[in-house]
Design a protein around this nucleic acid. Structure first.
Lengths: 330, 330
DNA sequence: TTGTATGCGTTATCAA
DNA sequence: TTGATAACGCATACAA
C-alpha cells in the first residue's frame, strides 16, 4: 500500500498538502489539488484507517450486538441501522452476543469502535463500566431489563402496546389469555412479558403460573412447546395467546394446524412485532406493530449525535395494533 | 484511556517491558511481570488496537459479506464462522452486501481488516484488484460464479449433489422436473441452477424455458411465485420441483397447501441446504445436505492459514441426500 | 533481563 | 497557499 509520503513525493508537495486535499480543507490552489489528485489515482493510494484512528481517536465504526443472526425481526432492524449508519459516515458491524461470552468482549473494543449498539441485551454492570472507562457509549434499540449504565434506549411503549392487544381480545370475548414468553430475567423479550402481565393484572384478568408458556424464541421450538401444551389438553384453558415474538406466534400457529386446533375458532393468536411473515401465514396473524425502521434509524442517529456532543435521550415510540384473521371471530 | 506509558511509570519499568509482558514474550522476570500486571489492572489499561494495527499492519479482524442478515441458511454459516474466528484470535464482522454498493466498499477496508470472506458473491474484477492491491485476501464459502481474483473458495460439489437429487426423483418416477431459481448471472445461487440444468441435460431429461421458475430467495416471494404458477394451471406440467434454496422450497410447499396441491402426491419438492426448518414443515422436505459447519469453519481456517503464509486451496466437499416425506411416494 | 530509540501513517500546529 | 515537524500508542532491533 502506497502511503501519504509517496503521494507527496510523486506530486512534488508535502504530506501536509496531501492531507489538506484528502480532507477537503479550504485554501489549496486548484493546480496543486489536481496534481495531488492524480498522484493519488496513479498510486492507487487509500488512507490507512488504522493510522487515522490512532491520531484522531475516532474510528468511525460502530458495533451492534445481535442475539441471533437469522432472526427476521432483528434482520429488519439491522438493515435500517446499517444503511443509516453508512449515510452518516459510519462503518457498522454486527456480532452475535451470547451472555457467556460477555467478558471476552470487554477487551475487544478499545480503539476499534466509537460506540456500541444493543438489541435489548442487559449487559453486566461491570461491562458497562468498562466500556464507559474506554469512552464507548452504549445505546440500545429496545429497552434492556437493566438499563442503568446505558447512554440511552429507543423502544416502543410495551405496556400501551400490550394494552391495545389485550383490549382487542377482550372485545372478542376472551378473558383467559395466555402468553408465550421467552428467556429469563435478563432476556431482551422480558420487558414484553412483564408488560403483558402488568396489563392483565390491571385489567383484572386471570394471571397464574399456567398463564406463561415458554418457547425458545425460535419458530420450531415454539411449535413444539405448543404441541406439547395441546397434547396435554391445554391445561391453562386459554382461548387466546399473545407472544413475546412473531416467530413464536407463527410456531404456535403451525402447531395448531398440525393438531387441528382451529385459529381463531378455538384459539386466537396475537404476535407483537409485525415481521413480514405474519402477513403470509394462514390465517394472517394479528400483531402489535413494532416500527422497526423508525426505531433503528433513531438509535443510530442518537448514537452519532451523542458522539458529536449532542446528549442522547431515551425515547418510547408508539406502536399500533394491526388486526388480522388470527384473532378475528366475526 | 490509560496508555502504555502510564503503566510503565506506575510499574517503574520501561514501555518496552510493558510490551513484553503484554505480548507474552519470554525473558521477563516473574517479579517484574507481576508488577506490570498489577499496574495494568489498577489503571484498567487496555491496549489500543488502532496503534497496534498501525505498527504491525495486522488488524486481526475479518469481514464477511452477507447477502441477507435474516436468511437462516446464511445464519448457520455465520454462527460457525464467528466462533471459529474467535477461537483463532480473530474479530469478525458482518456487513450486508448489495451489488449497488460494491464500489463504496472498495475504500472501506484498508487498515481495517486483514481478510474478506464472501458468501458466494461475485465481486467485480476491479474490486478484487483493488483489494489485492491493499493486500486483503478474499476467500469465499460457496463458489462464486466468477472466481478469478479469489484466493480460494470452499463449497460442495453442486453437480454431484444435484445428480443425487435428480436420480432420487427419477427413482420415484419423475421425469419432468422443474427448478425454482433465484437471481441473475452473478447471484450466489446461480451455481446451483447451472448444476441442475447440466445434470438434467446429462440425464436426458427435458429442459426448456418452462423448466425454470423464479422465486426471490425469500419464502414469501417463492410462495407467491408458486401460487401464480399453480393458478396458471402449472403450465410446465412438472411432477417435481427442486429449488435453489430451502426457504423457497418451504414457500413452494406453503403455496401447495394453500392451493390444495398434494405434496408429494401431485408434486414432489426437493430443497438443497438442509436448514432446520425443512425438518419441521408438513411434510418434511427432502434436501441436499449442505455441511454448513464444516464449510464455514474450513473457510475461516483457510483464511487464517493464508494470513500466516500457508497457501489456501479451493475445496469442494461432498454433500448427501436426505430423503424426507416431500418426495417419497411409497 | 531490561531500557533506548525509531518508525508505522496520520492529523494538526506553527512557520514560512 | 504551502511546508516542517511533533505527537498518537505500540512493537521491536539493538544496546546495555
Amino acid at each position: 500500500m502506497a502511503s501519504r509520503k509517496q503521494v507527496a513525493e510523486k506530486a512534488g508537495v508535502s504530506v501536509a498538502t496531501v492531507s489538506y486535499v484528502l480532507n477537503d480543507k479550504p485554501g489549496v490552489s486548484d493546480a496543486v489539488r489536481e496534481k495531488v489528485r492524480s498522484a493519488i489515482d496513479e498510486l492507487g493510494y487509500k488512507p490507512s484507517y488504522a493510522a487515522r484512528a490512532l491520531k484522531t481517536k475516532k474510528t468511525n465504526c460502530l458495533s451492534v450486538f445481535v442475539n441471533y443472526i437469522g432472526d427476521p425481526f432483528e434482520a429488519g432492524l439491522l438493515n435500517t441501522m446499517e444503511h443509516r449508519a453508512r449515510e452518516l459516515g459510519y462503518f457498522i458491524y454486527f456480532h452475535t452476543y451470547q451472555q457467556e461470552e460477555e467478558e471476552d468482549f470487554r477487551h475487544y473494543f478499545a480503539g476499534r469502535i466509537d460506540g456500541l449498539l444493543l438489541l435489548g441485551q442487559s449487559l453486566k454492570e461491570e461491562t458497562l463500566r468498562s466500556l464507559a472507562a474506554e469512552g464507548i457509549p452504549v445505546i440500545s434499540v429496545m429497552e434492556p431489563v437493566r438499563a442503568e449504565g446505558l447512554t440511552a434506549y429507543i423502544d416502543i411503549d410495551w405496556e400501551a402496546a400490550m394494552a391495545a392487544g389485550i383490549s382487542h381480545l377482550k372485545t372478542q370475548g376472551h378473558r383467559n389469555i395466555g402468553f408465550m414468553a421467552n428467556g429469563g430475567q435478563e432476556h431482551p423479550h422480558e420487558r414484553r412479558t412483564q408488560a403483558f402481565l402488568a396489563v392483565m393484572k390491571r385489567e383484572g384478568l386471570p394471571v397464574n403460573e399456567g398463564t406463561l408458556l415458554y418457547g425458545e424464541g425460535r419458530l420450531e421450538q415454539a411449535q413444539e412447546a405448543m404441541l406439547r401444551y395441546i397434547k396435554d389438553g391445554m391445561p391453562g384453558g386459554h382461548s387466546a395467546f399473545m407472544t413475546a415474538s412473531d416467530l413464536m406466534a407463527a410456531g404456535m400457529l403451525a402447531a395448531c394446524r398440525e393438531a387441528r386446533v382451529p385459529v381463531p375458532g378455538k384459539l386466537a393468536i396475537v404476535g407483537c412485532e409485525d415481521i413480514m411473515m405474519t402477513l403470509h401465514t394462514t390465517p394472517a396473524i394479528t400483531v402489535l406493530h413494532y416500527p422497526r425502521p423508525e426505531i433503528a434509524a433513531l438509535a443510530v442517529e442518537r448514537m452519532v449525535g451523542h458522539l458529536n456532543g449532542k446528549p442522547a435521550a431515551s425515547t418510547r415510540l408508539e406502536s399500533s395494533l394491526i388486526v388480522r384473521d388470527s384473532s378475528r371471530l366475526l
